[in-house]
Write a protein that binds this DNA or RNA. Structure first.
Length: 432
RNA sequence: GUGGGCGUAGCUCAGCUGGUUAGAGCGCCAGGUUGUGGCCCUGGAGGCCGAGGGUUCGAAUCCCUCCGUUCACCCCA
């Protein structure tokens, strides 16, 4: 059983689906490149410590979701559970801060978290994400949010919500945390057990607890917006102003805090409410302390990560996945075993001219082979039967309307070139 | 890690309160057309009914255990 089943929470992408993924990936790359982001490909695993330091020791990801292994040299390595830490590590390692004031990078690839799978959640899943490092202006926050918005628009998606909030800087957040804690301690009895834990360890995370009784208590608690310092207040106002300026709609979500420790000031999510319980298509925000925390200079950063499986589901729901035909241009169809060799030569010659060509099994009937060609989505079939081959001719049949005509094998290439253009590169003919 | 649903043909699923050789649709293969696909008709192949144990004269059906899967909680993409 285990031998013939992909591990829990993982899946195979079969050829038809892989076409769709290639399509999504190329769209994503097009948009990100046009916004000035360069692709970075980092290792799929890193030193465990990077994630512990970067993401935060008390986060769920680090506490219970990492795939960690010890290699033969005794090093602790971890399959990356997210992309930002690796990008920041590479940024520091390659001293990109010395090359330009602002660095704009994107990544796309698999991530790994050991959680129980459910709708929209996998153990190996795929994300793309952007990181803009070195820019502290709110313009950067706005650019990143608008990029996410525009990218989804480019893909044809509608009815998505942008949820926006700020979690302040370490200073004003500390004040807010204190206020929050004292406000909640009086009512600690009414909170759920995990929230009572959070009250001590990370009171901010308590805000988005889904338990109705907790929410009832939380609804009476002061908002972080009353505790922001002047700079954070100003920063957030400018972000919202910029979004309004370019007509990007958002919802203010004062209880949005996000689960990774590195966020400062702006945090946001893009939500698709039709996705089920795991409805975040993308999440991100500003992380002004992360680069320093990871051993680099004190430079600010902002970015987001977007789930590709969830993007796929959303595209599917909204009917935005185009037909991606994959049938061969030509289907060479020999009748009888003797002509199979001739057909094989012909198919090879056509492939070397860049045409996509499939070939039938010459021991099967014409009818059976035509059926196969039809199912494969062939545009034309080339029938190689004894009758025509006696005169060194083949029958070219258009599958769309069934029309067909005989052609001399010698002039075949010219005829075909007029009908279809090659999909692939020409292989140079070898010199005799 | 916790809880609920579901595991029957390649796929989607019937199979009532246990009762002889386990079914349908789609797909696949072949034939109806001595060399012509799509539509139609006919036939065929294909199942240790998730695995193991138990109850019973008898289990796909009832009970237990395990495995897988799915949804939800926690949390997140």
């Amino acid at each position: 059983m285990t031998l013939t089943t992909a591990p829990r929470g993982t899946f195979d992408l079969m050829p038809q689906q892989a076409l769709v993924w290639q399509w999504m990936e190329s769209k994503i790359r097009d948009v990100l490149l046009s916004y000035g982001y360069g692709e970075i490909r980092t290792p799929i695993f890193e030193h465990t410590e990077l994630f512990q330091r970067g993401i935060g020791e008390t986060t769920d990801i680090v506490e219970k979701e990492m795939y960690t292994l010890t290699d033969k040299g005794g090093r602790s390595l971890t399959l990356r559970p997210e992309g930002t830490a690796s990008v920041v590590r590479a940024y520091i390692q390659h001293k990109l801060y010395g090359q330009a004031p602002v660095t704009k990078l994107f990544y796309i690839g698999p991530m790994f978290r050991q959680e129980r799978p459910q709708a929209g959640r996998f153990r190996q899943f795929h994300q793309f994400g952007v990181e803009m490092i070195g820019e502290e202006s709110p313009v950067a926050d706005a650019e990143v949010i608008i990029l996410a918005h525009d990218l989804y628009c480019q893909l044809g998606l509608t009815a998505l919500e942008i949820h926006l909030n700020t979690v302040g800087c370490p200073e004003c957040r500390q004040e807010y945390k204190a206020a929050l804690t004292s406000a909640l301690e009086a009512e600690a009895e009414a909170l759920c057990s995990t929230c009572r834990m959070r009250l001590v360890r990370n009171p901010l995370r308590l805000l988005d607890c889904k338990s109705p009784t907790c929410q009832e208590v939380i609804s009476r608690v002061p908002s972080i917006h009353n505790y922001l310092c002047a700079d954070c207040r100003d920063h957030f106002d400018q972000v919202t102003t910029l979004l309004k300026q370019v007509g990007v709609k958002y919802k203010l979500s004062p209880k949005l805090v996000r689960g990774l420790d590195y966020y400062t000031r702006t945090v946001f999510e893009v939500i698709n409410n039709d996705l089920g319980a795991q409805n975040a298509l993308c999440g991100g925000g500003r992380y002004d302390g992360l680069v320093a925390e990871c051993g680099g200079p004190a430079v600010p950063g902002v970015g987001f990560a977007s789930g590709i499986e969830r993007l796929f589901t959303t595209l599917e729901q909204q009917g935005k996945i185009p037909e991606l035909a994959s049938g061969p241009q030509l289907y060479v169809l020999p009748l009888g075993e003797e002509l199979t060799v001739v057909a094989f030569e012909l198919a090879t010659a056509l492939r070397r001219q860049g045409f996509s060509v499939e070939m039938g099994n010459g021991t099967k009937s014409l009818k059976a082979q035509l059926k196969t060609a039809h199912k494969a989505g062939a545009v034309y079939t080339l029938i190689l039967g004894e009758d025509e081959w006696r005169e060194r001719q083949v029958t070219l049949k258009a599958m769309a309307d069934g029309s067909q005509k005989r052609l001399p094998a010698s002039g075949l290439l010219e005829e075909i070139t007029e009908l279809v253009s090659p999909r692939g590169p020409k292989v140079p003919l070898r010199e005799e």
